[in-house]
Amino acid sequence: MSFNKTVFLPVDPDAAFALITEPERLRRWKTVAARVDLRVGGDYRWTITPGHAARGTFTEIEPGKRVVYTWGWEGDAQLPPGASTVTVNLEAVDGGTTVQLIHEGLTTEQEVGHAEGWNHFLERLVLLATTGDAGPDEWSAAPDPIDELASAEASLAVAQRVLQGLKDSDMVARTPCEDFTVDGLLDHLFGSIASIGTALGVTVPDRPTASPEVRIAEASQVTLEAFRARGLEGGLDMGFAELPATLVANILNLELLVHAWDFATATGQELAVSPVLSDYVLGLARNTISPQMRGASFAEETLVDESAASMERLIAFTGREVAGI
């Protein structure tokens, strides 16, 4: 069985090729995180939605015309990485480019599921190419099932959406984090992610001159991929102490989701967070922030109405004022 669909994009073939191959553009319509080695024989890993990563190898590449890659899912015995093939053909037409996607090597059941997925994401691709913004992906909002790593990936999706909205003039804005401007908080967030990556044994890339979204996305992708490969068992040497891996994952969740709120609040952006995610991360926060941490890493919990949403209660639990939400 195979899936075959063609859509029209109002951009030239080179721009269309970039949209389907470059991590920064893939994150805007198809993936939460993306690693791409764009050469024949090179591999890729795309976190399509939290908890679900596709992997494969590029077998044909003709910039602006065609790309072919193998496809499968991490941890899926029925369709493992490399088990099927995706071909994307680009053709220049009047006013833009047609994008034909063919997914071969699927069972009947797999074709049904992948058709739903490709239809969803191709619709987002068309929206991005047409309007410049595909919007937040509802499929990444509420992981099911959810665990510490799936929630961290969902939190990353939220954070990246806010980071994409930052402007150069926002860098000097004060944030709800005492003593931090937006620029300073970006350095802090990168440092936190990089320290976790180092503990996981990977080198975290840093491009300070890249956009805030690219800088944090690249660091997070490397760190989360390493965390996925390692798992949540045992402890991690964080340099200052060995911590349970689950606790380190909790910290990563808080860094991504709470600081996303900080950036949004500082720059007047709307923060879209599913209650499923904020409920879960609030639970992680309660298991992470001990009374001994108050006054040092976290201020005292602030008060909110009992009817407040879980995101507001999470923010209050970290010691931030939420009256302006």
Rank of each mutant, 00 (worst) to 15 (best):
S274V: 10
L256E: 03
T70A: 03
A199H: 10
E300C: 03
S211W: 01
T108R: 01
L271F: 11
G324P: 00
D168L: 07
A152D: 09
I20H: 10
G268R: 13
G324W: 00
A115E: 03
A141Y: 12
R228W: 06
F121P: 02
G234D: 14
R66F: 09
A260N: 12
T98D: 03
L166I: 14
G231T: 11
R230W: 12
A92L: 06
T47K: 10
N250F: 13
F121S: 00
E218D: 14
L90N: 09
S310N: 09
L19S: 07
S192W: 07
L257I: 15
F263I: 13
K5W: 13
P80K: 11
Q100F: 00
A226C: 13
A199N: 07
H188V: 15
A159S: 14
S307L: 06
L284A: 08
L9K: 14
S307C: 01
I196E: 01
F263L: 11
H120K: 00
M293F: 02
P23Q: 07
Y69S: 02
V202P: 10
T85P: 02
E178K: 13
T97P: 14
Q221H: 13
D37F: 04
P136R: 15
N4S: 15
G283S: 10
A157G: 06
T108E: 11
W29S: 04
W46M: 10
R45G: 03
T318V: 05
T87L: 09
A316K: 02
W71I: 04
G197S: 12
D133L: 00
E148K: 09
T288Y: 10
Y44L: 02
A92M: 03
R124G: 01
N253H: 06
V99I: 00
Q269M: 11
H259E: 13
T70W: 02
D137E: 14
A199F: 12
A150N: 06
P136Y: 02
K30S: 09
K30P: 00
L90K: 07
G295A: 05
I216R: 05
A219S: 12
R45V: 08
I289C: 09
A154P: 05
I196C: 05
I146W: 04
M293E: 04
A18D: 15
F17S: 05
F263S: 06
R286T: 08
I193C: 10
L224N: 11
L128D: 05
W46Q: 06
L9N: 10
E242G: 08
E111D: 00
W46C: 06
T70M: 02
V276Y: 03
C177V: 09
E24F: 01
Q292D: 08
